[in-house]
Amino acid sequence: MDSKVDIKIKEDHGHWYDNNIDPYKGLAEIIAVTLKNSLISQQISFVDVPYRSKTKKSFLKKIEDKLIEKDYSPESMTDLAGIRIITLIESDVQKVCDLVSKMFNVHQADSVNKSEKLGEEKVGYRSVHFVCDVGEVRGKLPEFSAYKGLCFEIQVRTALEHAWAEIEHDRGYKLGGKLPSHLNRRFKLLSGLLESADLEFNRLTVEIEEYAKKLNEQIKKNNLDYELTNVGLLVLLSEKFGKYIVYKNKSDKNAYSIDLGIAELYKFGIDNLKEFDRVASTYTNQYDFGRDNSLVGFIRQLLMFVDINKYFDEVYAASDKAWTVISSSTIEILEQKYSREEIEKILTRHSIKLIHF
């Protein structure tokens, strides 16, 4: 083809892009926001839902590559608006795929599961790609009416798949294609390791959920011969001592709070559910703990009731998360067992200030 014709075609495609890309920018954003809200409402865990509209450079490159193989026009491009849903584990990928299929009109002929294309004997880039439009029902809504008939692509990946794609493909680090034999072997080994890690994280998550379910059943039967773990303690607290604890939000039950509570219990010498239940049952029956404790607050109050000197000398003093103030309401609760003078002596010894509210 004449070079002048090539330049003219490229200019025409560039004009098409300039005149048509704006709706796709809005489409990518509204689809991403809609998906995020739906994932949250369906309680499907995800890492992020990034989105983008195709850049002009990428658009022109794709047109050029496609025209080598066949006739191709800008109207044929289905990924001018792109959204990625990054999940934590493999089992959430299928949940997301089911959700996408219900929410939008999926173009099955253009959609692909990269894992299935790899087959059983190959490892590498894995992801599920959907080509969609908003569909008839959603297209009638005012916020979607401007995007009716426009296609967009949704990619669904786990966090590890996403990391691999960033290295192998999106960042252009030249890890794909033909490599020297010794590097190609390492490349394949790394691909397999990442895929194995993804599968193992998924299995581990399923087993933890099964363990929690089993533990819940055993706790209801008062069988508490289990080590003290995050899962076990949360189940026991919820089942038997939930009325003493107020969770401000879901995250209160996770990470920092429960880890800190477990650490202090172990330092105090309580390392199994049976012992924790015995101590907690004894002291909640004997004293009024109140009804607005945090998870860590309840555990600390319990340990102080058991032995306030031991708690401060062996647990508090050894902690790198030491708190330096205590509320007057907590002091009033502790006065059910200890005198104000005894409590204030301990607080002074550990440089803890009393605050009133």
Score class of each variant (00 low, 15 high):
2 D>C: 09
13 H>N: 15
13 H>T: 02
19 N>E: 14
24 Y>G: 03
28 A>L: 06
30 I>G: 06
38 S>M: 07
40 I>N: 03
49 V>Y: 05
54 K>A: 00
57 K>F: 11
63 I>R: 10
68 I>L: 14
69 E>L: 13
81 A>K: 02
88 L>V: 05
88 L>I: 07
110 D>R: 14
120 E>H: 11
125 Y>K: 02
133 D>G: 00
138 R>A: 11
139 G>F: 00
140 K>S: 12
141 L>D: 12
145 S>A: 13
150 L>N: 10
153 E>D: 03
154 I>W: 07
160 L>G: 11
162 H>G: 08
174 K>M: 15
177 G>C: 07
184 N>S: 14
184 N>K: 12
185 R>Q: 13
187 F>K: 15
192 G>Y: 05
193 L>S: 14
194 L>T: 14
198 D>V: 01
199 L>Q: 15
211 Y>T: 07
219 I>R: 05
225 D>C: 09
227 E>N: 14
240 K>E: 13
255 A>M: 12
256 Y>P: 07
258 I>H: 08
262 I>M: 02
270 I>C: 03
281 S>I: 06
283 Y>S: 05
288 D>S: 07
293 N>T: 09
294 S>R: 02
316 Y>N: 11
318 A>G: 11
319 S>T: 01
323 W>P: 08
331 I>T: 00
341 E>D: 08
343 I>P: 03
346 I>D: 01
348 T>Y: 05
349 R>G: 12
350 H>R: 01
357 F>A: 11
